[in-house]
Amino acid sequence: MEQDNESKPSLGLMALGALRHQVVSITIVMLLLWVILWWMSPYFLTVNNILEITLQASVTAIMAAGVSFVIYAGMIDLSVGSIFAMAAVGGGLAYHWTAKAEFGTGASVLASLAVTIAIGAAAGILNGLGIVVFRIPAFVVTLGMMGIARGIGFIICGGVPIYGLPKAYTEIGQGKLGPIPIPTVITLILFVAFYFVLRNTRFGRFTYAIGSNAEASRLSGIKVNFMIPMIFLICGACAALSSIIEAARLGTMQPAGGNGYELQAIGSVFIGGASISGGEGHIFGTLIGALLVTTIRNGLNIYGVSAFWQLVANGLIIIFAVAADQIRKRR
């Protein structure tokens, strides 16, 4: 009855096994896409354009890194796009207030960055507390926060975008370390750090455990009600960090900014192989996912496809990424 699987796996089988790993397969898909785009336009596969893509991807990637924690823990966060705007605008106001007090530009920029991150973290904690205190699904709480944060963003700046950022701030988005854009460097550091956190810390392992079986985690003594607010804190703080990159690149904070970014961030995580039901996923999958989403956008830009169609493409990507996960599970 039982079959012996002792025979040595052949090279082909090993390759197949690796292919089943989503990070590997999605990387291959992305490289294929790059080759196609390069074949269609030699301009595409230049060092400059590749670096440009990593720069463009950084905002999505950083936001998606935070969303990854939430999705690995079996939940969802729809509010990151709105938190993005609220945190950016709050930081912009903090810059102008402290600039008036003349502590020096450096101090004002630091204050602005701190306020932005703090707002993102606080909004995230509130998301998490809403989930554990009221015992309602993350989907509902973060849908509420999506409206709340967007509204507060508009309220605090009176709907007027903030300009006049100093070079010390914009350098974060526009500067380079050698040939490499600073946002690309920040993104890489963040992902390596998160890789370590998810793999080697109790916090990271508990994140997966909660997503895999919350009841078993609770019974094993994991403080689920503490973990969930912390997971959302990371998510909110990442949304805020991504808003800093964008503000620095554009030199402005927009209360209407970040609109629809949650779509790209969530899409990146699912493309990266995370399961909709939680418990699995690889943070570097998310990074590749973000690069893929951006590549598609970049490619569509080169061919002059309108931004409206790009939205459609984004939505389709999410659906197909999750469908692929379901198909893999059925096997």
Binding site: R205, A209, S212, N213, A216, S217, L219, G221, S275
Partner: peptide, 20 residues
């Protein structure tokens, strides 16, 4: 059974008290 299916056997055994 109260196990986390996507985690490894070792992690499930030590879920509440991961060695540090």
């Amino acid at each position: 059974l109260n196990l986390a299916p996507t985690l490894s056997v070792a992690e499930n055994i030590f879920l509440g008290h991961l060695p540090k």
